[in-house]
């Protein structure tokens, strides 16, 4: 299943969120991965039409989603419907669920998962070089990863969405810090699923990696 993964990486929030995608999602998808400098409009235009799923990390607002250094990727009224038609789209970005998400669905996207307000979390700046090791950020970002893995495993959009929500609820229940707990509850309340909740993508047959080496035939003496 071809997947476009867009991982902006130019400031602390994009570094943190893309770090989790790089560690937990990128290794399992086919290589249409746009990272850092390549998260721009032209590479996206080339990769998106070939993909079943589009997963993006970047800054956003009500009617746009941006990539590296806030380069425009998707903006209401300024993209070709061919880029999104029949796709499942997950945008880890602020507010794109209010106007852009419905617009993507109106232009043929199967399902959209995003947020109707800001996406917020607490991260450890000391771990910017290894963002996937950040336990503070993991409280918010691992539910996103779990939802994406569910989607890539062939679960429906609704099941993937529920997986993410359950993650926020579970983590909020055991989180001792009030600010982190508020962020989790805020993200939970603002997550949104649009389009067909029963939409799913076909999964690849599971391949055991590493593939076992061929048998060694020793000469018969």
């Amino acid at each position: 299943m071809p997947v476009s993964v867009l991982m902006s990486d130019f400031d602390l929030p994009t570094r943190s969120a893309s770090g989790f995608l790089l560690r937990y999602i990128a290794p399992r998808v086919e290589p249409i991965q746009l990272y850092s400098f390549f998260v721009r409009r032209l590479p996206f235009q080339l990769s998106a039409p070939q993909s079943d799923i589009i997963i993006g990390v970047g800054h956003g607002d009500k009617d746009s989603f941006t990539g590296q250094n806030e380069a425009m990727i998707l903006e209401v009224g300024k993209y070709n419907p061919r880029e999104v038609k029949g796709k499942m789209i997950k945008l880890l970005s602020c507010q794109t669920g209010t106007v852009l998400g419905p617009d993507l669905i109106a232009n043929g996207a199967k399902a959209f998962l995003g947020y109707v307000d800001d996406y917020v979390w607490v991260m450890d700046s000391d771990l910017a070089a290894t963002p996937w090791a950040d336990e503070m950020a993991a409280t918010s970002l691992m539910p996103v990863i779990d939802g994406l893995n569910a989607l890539l495993d062939g679960k429906t959009a609704r099941e993937a969405f529920d997986t993410e929500l359950e993650g926020y609820t579970r983590n909020a229940g055991i989180e001792e810090d009030d600010l982190i707990r508020s962020c989790l509850e805020f993200n939970h309340d603002n997550a949104v699923l649009l389009g067909d909740p029963a939409a799913r993508v076909r999964t690849r047959p599971k391949i055991m990696i590493p593939i076992p080496p061929p048998p060694i035939f020793s000469p018969v003496s």
């Binding site: 602390l12 800054h59 956003g60 602020c94 800001d118 771990l127 962020c183």
Partner: peptide, 22 residues
């Protein structure tokens, strides 16, 4: 959070907001 041995930072993925991303 101030007690933890780390540099906790509140971040968001907003665009064109009047507050910092981090």
């Amino acid at each position: 959070l101030g007690k933890r041995n780390s540099r906790p930072t509140l971040v968001n993925l907003g665009k064109g907001t009047g507050y910092p991303h981090a």
